[in-house]
Write a protein that binds this DNA or RNA. Structure first.
Ligand SMILES: [Mn+2]
Ligand SMILES: [Mn+2]
Ligand SMILES: [Zn+2]
Ligand SMILES: [Zn+2]
Lengths: 159, 159
DNA sequence: AATCTAAATGATAAAAAATATCATTTGATA
DNA sequence: TATCAAATGATATTTTTTATCATTTAGATT
């Protein structure tokens, strides 16, 4: 935790940004909720608990900054809000997500399974891949017994 | 074109919805721009050209209806607006997209390349897949000569 | 053809998310 | 300690989407 914060401080200084108390509080909230996918509003409410004077705009600005520096990733699960998550250590690409249409939970595939497909894309489309987004929508293992007809679980509300 | 419209009319009636003039105009705009990925605002402006009296709310309602009936797909390319496209004939799943970070163009992979990965997901995660979203961000074949260092083309603005 | 009625529409208000503005504060450096 | 660009907080504004509601319409029923 402390090491991660220090590391981020260095990443910021490397680009001559300061790790202000507000930024540090935001970073800590993100680290403490690393397995979640928090929205800016989520982060704001959590940061307020430890730094009540922080403004929403600062949270947005900090998230944007961390995203620009590739310290965190911006995510969009099609529910109308941008979500954020820490980027794993050496992760080259976004990892994959499994979104349950029944309970809403989000699971992760942290290994990159797209290698072979990306080779095909580069070859067949002459498209140089920089990053990707892969999300599966379906029924998670926790819900499978409660869902009789999975085909009826509509994903049309999700983009 | 006429057959497609008639077919959609039947899909609507099957759920006791009417193909009103406004809905038909909207459907025609979507059909005439089938290879694009139009936003609601885009559709609205195009529909206005042939049916100037239409209201924006009606366009939103129509797009939502067509999406609920799985006649069109809702898309989110992380640029802040929801986009829409006709669903291909027998398409089970969303097709894949290649988004160029340099020119913004969107190309498509209409074949479903995710079969093997989906099998792994179902097996290893006990997750029953209903649909998926796969997008690649990178440099398209048209732009590759203009982009010296593709690694620098940042995708951090995109969710 | 005239009447009826639920569905659909258009205008517009409201909500929700994100960004812009600007006066004030802060923190690294001299 | 004084300086000053960077950062912040409050809040206005923009943008996208949804909700509300009075009015109109399409299609069924006489
Ligand atoms: Mn994740
Ligand atoms: Mn497409
Ligand atoms: Zn579930
Ligand atoms: Zn391009």
């Amino acid at each position: 935790m402390e090491e991660r914060v220090k590391e981020i401080k260095q990443q910021l200084s490397a680009h001559s940004y300061k790790l202000t108390p507000q930024r540090e509080a935001t970073v800590r909230v993100l680290l403490e909720n690393e397995q979640d996918h928090l929205s800016a509003e989520d982060v704001y409410l959590l940061v307020k608990e430890k730094a009540p004077e922080i403004g929403l705009a600062t949270v947005y600005r900090t998230l944007e900054l961390l995203s620009d520096l590739s310290i965190i990733h911006k995510l969009n699960f099609g529910d109308g809000v941008t979500r954020y998550e820490f980027r794993a250590e050496g992760a080259e690409h976004h990892h994959h997500h499994l979104i349950c249409l029944h309970c809403g939970r989000v699971d992760e595939i942290t290994d990159d399974w797209l290698g072979p497909i990306e080779n095909r894309v580069q070859k067949e489309f002459d498209f140089q891949i920089i990053d990707h987004r892969l999300t599966f929508h379906g029924i998670c293992h926790r819900c499978k017994d409660q869902v009789k007809d999975p085909k009826k679980a509509v994903s049309s509300k999700v983009t």
